[in-house]
Simulated scan of single mutants.
Amino acid sequence: MDRVPRWLAERTGTTLPLTAVTKGTLVSFVTWLDQVKEAAPASFDRRITGVTVTARRPPYGIEVPKEATKAAREALKRLKADRERLARGRGQAVPATPAHLRAMVTASAEMPRAEGPQRRWKAYVLPDLAVYRNRALSLIAFSIAGRAAEVSVLDLPDIVLVDAGLEVHVPEVKGRPARDVEVAYGEHPETCPVLNWLAYKGAAEEGGLGETGPAFRAVDQWGHLGTSPAIVAQLAEVARRVQDGVPPKLKARVFTATADLAALAGWVSLPRWSPPHWLSPGYWSRSSRSV
Rank of each mutant, 00 (worst) to 15 (best):
V64K: 08
V64G: 06
P65C: 01
K66G: 04
E67N: 15
A68F: 02
T69P: 11
A71F: 11
A71Q: 08
R73P: 03
R73A: 07
R73F: 02
E74L: 06
E74A: 10
E74Q: 12
E74H: 04
A75I: 07
K77S: 14
R78D: 09
L79Y: 04
A81W: 05
D82A: 04
D82W: 01
D82M: 05
R83L: 07
R83V: 01
R83N: 04
E84D: 14
R85I: 01
R85M: 02
L86P: 00
L86K: 07
L86N: 11
A87M: 03
A87V: 01
R88C: 01
R88T: 00
R88A: 00
G89Q: 10
G89Y: 09
G89H: 07
G91L: 05
G91H: 08
G91W: 03
Q92P: 06
Q92W: 12
A93T: 12
A93C: 14
P95Y: 03
P95R: 03
T97W: 01
P98V: 00
H100F: 04
H100R: 07
R102P: 04
T106R: 11
A107P: 00
A107C: 08
S108G: 13
S108T: 13
E110W: 14
M111W: 12
P112N: 09
P112M: 11
P112S: 08
P112E: 08
R113H: 09
A114G: 10
A114H: 12
P117C: 10
Q118M: 14
R119K: 12
R119G: 11
R120H: 14
R120M: 15
R120G: 15
W121C: 10
W121Y: 13
W121K: 15
K122Y: 07
K122L: 04
K122F: 06
A123W: 08
A123E: 12
A123R: 15
V125C: 13
L126Q: 14
L126E: 13
L126H: 09
D128T: 08
D128C: 02
D128Q: 10
L129H: 08
A130P: 07
V131R: 00
Y132L: 09
Y132P: 00
Y132C: 10
R135Q: 06
R135E: 03
A136S: 14
S138I: 14
A141C: 13
F142D: 05
F142P: 00
F142T: 04
S143D: 11
I144L: 13
I144C: 12
A145C: 10
G146I: 08
G146F: 08
A148C: 15
E150V: 09
V151G: 03
V151D: 07
V153E: 00
V153C: 00
L154T: 02
L154S: 03
P157Q: 05
